[in-house]
Simulated scan of single mutants.
Amino acid sequence: MATVELLFSALPEHVRTARLVAAAVARRAGVDEAVLDEVRLAVGEACTRAVSLHQSSGVSAPVKVSLIEDEKKFSIEVGDEAPHANASGPVPAARAGGEPPPAEEPTAEEEDEMGLAVISGLVDDVEVTAGETGGLIRMSWPTTPASVLP
């Protein structure tokens, strides 16, 4: 079992790098070429969600991405250290003065739910856990054994 671990500061510009690294490691692990776009999109959504949670909660810890290569599957874990009010996601942030966000803007909770819905639509094997000390999204894809070269 090989594992690659990536830590990055919670800034949106680092999400692209995480997507590229995840796709490269997934390809090397034997994930079907036709699925690599799904891997990139799912990792992008999960990392964007983690960055957003860190920024809205004032968490300075890095976002952690683990790329795990097993015999028959490739897994990606995206972890955040932001406190979650409940298992479905964070409590939406109030604006200055306690005003709720305007109706046309999605709340943080709605954005979080949309991101999780996108991930669930892209990945058949996904598990989301969240608690007071952070959350974890674990996604897995089947792999095909690398062909042995003569």
Rank of each mutant, 00 (worst) to 15 (best):
A93I: 11
E45G: 05
I76S: 00
R28W: 10
V91D: 06
V118S: 09
E38V: 02
V43Q: 02
P83R: 02
Q55E: 14
E113D: 12
E110F: 05
K72P: 06
D70K: 13
E113C: 03
A108S: 14
E110C: 07
A82D: 04
E111P: 04
P62R: 04
V91Q: 12
K73S: 15
V78F: 05
N86V: 06
P92E: 03
P83H: 02
L53K: 10
G30Q: 01
V123R: 03
E105D: 13
I76G: 09
D70F: 13
E110M: 12
G58R: 03
H54F: 02
G79V: 01
V123Q: 10
E104Q: 13
G97C: 08
V59S: 00
E71I: 13
H84E: 04
E109P: 00
E105L: 15
T48L: 13
A29Y: 02
H54P: 00
T107H: 08
V78G: 04
A82E: 03
A42R: 00
P92K: 00
L67E: 08
P62C: 05
A46H: 09
G89N: 06
C47A: 11
R49H: 15
M114C: 13
P62G: 10
A46L: 11
G98V: 07
K73M: 14
T107C: 05
G58V: 05
S60N: 08
S88G: 11
I68W: 08
G58E: 01
G30C: 07
T107D: 07
G79C: 09
T48Y: 03
G115S: 15
F74W: 05
F74M: 04
P62T: 10
E113H: 14
I119T: 04
E99S: 13
G44D: 01
I68N: 09
D112W: 14
E45C: 01
P101V: 11
A108I: 11
V39N: 01
I68A: 08
G97A: 09
E81S: 10
D70R: 14
K73Q: 14
P83Y: 03
G79L: 11
V25Y: 07
G97F: 09
P101G: 09
E45V: 03
G97H: 06
V31A: 01
E111C: 13
V91W: 10
A103S: 06
S75M: 11
D112F: 15
V59Q: 02
G58A: 07
G44I: 07
A26I: 06
R49C: 11
S75C: 12
P102H: 09
I76F: 02
A82Q: 04
P90Q: 04
E45N: 07
